[in-house]
């Protein structure tokens, strides 16, 4: 099992690659709003979900998704990978 820092770094790398130059490693903080600021588009959300399923090794039910869970790297970790991860 990867550590919290490793998982967040994996997410950060994926987001920066998906954003295609919209944001740099230095600019993307754990609390940077990735949807609100349109760093990730609606088309990339599907890929992000697949990426999360890969990280957690669990399928993700899109109908159960709630507002705010993809707000930033911290909230993604908290909702899908942290102690409360199973709730979503």
């Amino acid at each position: 099992m990867k550590s919290e820092a490793e998982v967040k770094q994996t997410l950060r790398d994926w987001i920066i690659k998906a954003a295609g130059g919209k944001i740099s490693q230095e600019q993307l903080q754990n609390d940077t709003p990735i949807i609100e600021e349109r760093i990730i588009t609606s088309l990339q959300i599907m890929d992000l979900i697949l990426q999360l399923e890969k990280i957690t090794g669990k399928p993700l039910d899109v109908e159960q998704l709630k507002p705010g869970v993809f707000r930033n790297i911290d909230s993604i970790y908290e909702n899908f990978c942290g102690e409360n991860g199973d709730e979503n």
């Binding site: 949807i35 609100e36 588009t41 609606s42 088309l43 990339q44 959300i45 599907m46 979900i49 899109v62 109908e63 998704l65 709630k66 507002p67 705010g68 869970v69 993809f70």
Partner: peptide
């Protein structure tokens, strides 16, 4: 109340997903 638009085949439409995540 927060809502989503009535998308066709919503589960496979990224726009629907986006509206759920960011109403």
């Amino acid at each position: 109340e927060y809502a989503t638009d009535p998308f066709f085949n919503p589960a496979s439409n990224p726009k629907y997903l986006m509206q759920k995540l960011d109403p």
